[in-house]
Design a protein around this nucleic acid. Structure first.
Length: 582
DNA sequence: GCCGTTTTCGGCCCGACTGTTTTCAGTCG
């Protein structure tokens, strides 16, 4: 059994034990072991073979035995027994915001609630408010939480979609009969969340490729299987109760550009394209651009756009949100690419809640070809995340100075902080401490429930503070799991423009905050954008790619992004900001 | 269940916030 699946299984065991009221530390041991498996330095089977798995922190004797058993036999009786001990619908209840293991246990014990449907019925009947420890407010929150789940239901995040589709895509692309292949759909457009997975390929005879596809081990269910298309369900990698649809379509190679465009979408963009073709006496479908007499030949998508009088429209812009007018006038932006980034900011280390050392983070950034890295561990109020005291901040500065000395002139580590924005909009460090940083990310981590007016005033006060370089994850949302806090983001953007404070695109695939639409607005308002990974490990730096996706969907070119400027320009700008402080 | 050792037990990240209570449990990060 593959490592990620073992990790998921152990995690699930921990969760079930929580619901059963087990010793919380025993539950955590399962979650920790799952986490440890997700961050193994080497291949699991190798680590089992050479005994190094037993040395991994968080994996003791018992976990080691369970992991080995799962890895070698694919089964674990203890898991099967646990799984049988709770109704299958009960794990889904954990996704309701505000419901944890204890409340779920109480609901199960007193009302026999073991599914979302039961929960809703009980809440609507007013039964929940009568349980000891619950009340009217909790009942209302549960109903609200369920409706949020339904909005976000069935979709998955980009990184998970990629993890699911990539191995399948590689198999298809490298298949000897396949000529061209591409991932299509919302993933190609780099949408925030992904509904299903689409792979397109061309071949003289698609049937054998489709046959192999439906026989893949990760396929849980075959929905349909014909000669040009097959649909299957795959297990989500993170939610055992969720299935993800994956479609594979095969066309003849001459049809490929049309099919590629068609299956990439969006729907609104496709409708506009077809209208455009009709206006030119042509007709467009997924197989061809046809005239009355004959088809218009196209080798690539570029040809297709050209045939309709358009510059090539990158997939990220295909939303029928102004891209046609711009493509017609040759006014499409030269979109930023990952390679344009010269460095990045807002990265955590093991000084607060990150996993890697300062040096490991710097080394990882350097090996990605970046020229600088901004450290930003948490500030003192965020004790739960290991927020740094003033004393530790000064210690870290000394370590960063020494590290810069060691790394030499070609790479620079910036001293920064992810400084909490306190409830009144003031910052979590006094000015004399803030003055010692090269830059300051200001973020909200508390009092999410504030009324919109207060929250907006709070954040505006922070972005208007001359010591704040950039605003971190401006809305606090977690995709598919937590809504943004109530805030007037346009007012914040206006205030940031006024103060010359930058706004971050938080590239963590759970956040993507700010979103593409506000990116466009921020750019229009003249606000500098900075793409930050909010990395808590060296691997987290790779999330920058998702941030670039947001920037591209937000019509940004390299010129609009602070950390796509030359390293010397970045240093100069940070110096200028510090020297102009009152 | 893990881990370190004051070496086979006893602590395990921990404080703010919310909604429920009337002093605190549960959730979140």
């Amino acid at each position: 059994m593959e490592t990620s699946r073992i990790a998921r299984l152990l995690d699930e065991m921990g969760t079930i034990l929580e619901i059963q009221g087990e010793n919380p530390f025993r539950c955590r041991a399962y979650h920790n072991a799952a986490q440890a498996l997700g961050n193994l330095p080497e291949d699991l089977s190798e680590m089992i073979a050479d005994g190094s798995l037993a040395e991994v922190p968080g994996i003791g004797e018992t976990m080691h035995a369970k992991i080995v058993q799962l890895a070698t036999t694919g089964r674990l009786p203890a898991y099967d027994k646990l799984r049988k001990s709770v109704p299958s619908g009960i794990l889904a209840l954990l996704r309701v915001p505000g419901l944890g293991p204890k409340k779920i246990k109480a609901l199960k014990d007193s009302l026999d609630v073991d599914s979302l449907a039961d929960l809703r019925a009980a809440a609507e009947a007013g039964q929940i408010a009568r349980i000891k420890g619950f009340g009217a407010k909790t009942e209302a929150n549960i109903l609200e939480g369920i409706s949020f789940l339904e909005k976000s239901g069935g979709r998955i995040l980009q990184h998970e979609a990629l993890a699911l589709v990539s191995p399948i895509f590689e198999l298809v692309r490298n298949h000897p009969k396949v000529k061209r292949a591409e991932i299509c759909g919302s993933l190609r457009r780099r949408a925030e969340t992904i509904g299903d997975l689409d792979i397109l390929f061309s071949a003289d005879d698609p049937a054998p490729v489709l046959k192999e596809f439906v026989g893949l081990p990760q396929v849980m269910k075959v929905l349909g299987h014909g000669t040009t298309k097959a649909s299957v369900m795959l297990h989500s990698l993170t939610r055992p109760d969720q299935l993800v649809q994956c479609d594979l379509r095969g066309v003849e190679d001459r049809q490929f550009p049309f099919a590629l465009h068609y299956f990439t979408g969006s729907k609104a963009h496709n409708i506009a394209m077809r209208k455009r073709a009709l206006a030119r006496g042509l007709s467009l479908n997924e197989y061809a651009l046809s005239g009355e007499a004959k088809d218009v030949p196209c080798e690539t998508e570029e040809d297709l756009f050209r045939a309709l009088g358009l510059a090539y429209i990158p997939p990220e812009l295909r939303e029928d949100a102004g891209e046609f007018a711009a493509a017609e006038e040759g006014a499409l932006p030269d979109l930023i690419a990952l390679e344009d980034l010269t460095g990045t900011f807002h990265c955590h280390t093991n000084w607060s809640d990150g996993e890697a050392t300062l040096e490991e983070m710097a080394e990882a950034a350097r090996s990605m070809g970046l020229s600088y890295l901004g450290i930003a561990d948490h500030s003192r109020s965020l004790r739960m995340a290991g927020g740094l005291t003033v004393e530790r901040v000064r210690d870290q500065w000394a370590k960063i100075d020494a590290l810069n000395e060691k790394l030499g002139p070609k790479f620079r580590v910036f001293k920064g902080t992810e400084c909490d924005i306190l409830a009144d909009g003031s910052l979590d460090f006094p000015d004399e401490v803030l003055d010692g940083f090269d830059y300051v990310v200001a973020s909200v981590h508390s009092r999410f429930g504030m009324p919109r007016g207060e929250m907006t005033a709070r954040i505006i006060r922070a972005v208007s503070n001359p010591r704040v370089t950039m605003l971190g994850h401006p809305t606090g949302r977690l995709l598919l799991s937590r809504d943004s806090y109530a805030v007037d983001l346009d007012a914040v953007i206006a205030a940031a423009a006024e103060a010359g404070t930058m706004i971050e695109i938080n590239a963590n695939p759970h956040r993507l905050d700010i979103d593409a639409a506000h990116c466009r607005r921020a750019r229009k308002a003249g606000v500098g954008i900075v793409i930050n990974p909010d990395a808590h490990s060296t691997a987290g730096l790779a999330d920058l790619a998702f941030g670039v996706g947001v920037a591209r969907r937000g019509w940004l070119s390299a010129d609009d992004v602070f950390n796509a400027a030359s390293p010397s320009a970045v240093v100069k700008d940070l110096d200028r900001r510090r020297k102009s402080l009152p």
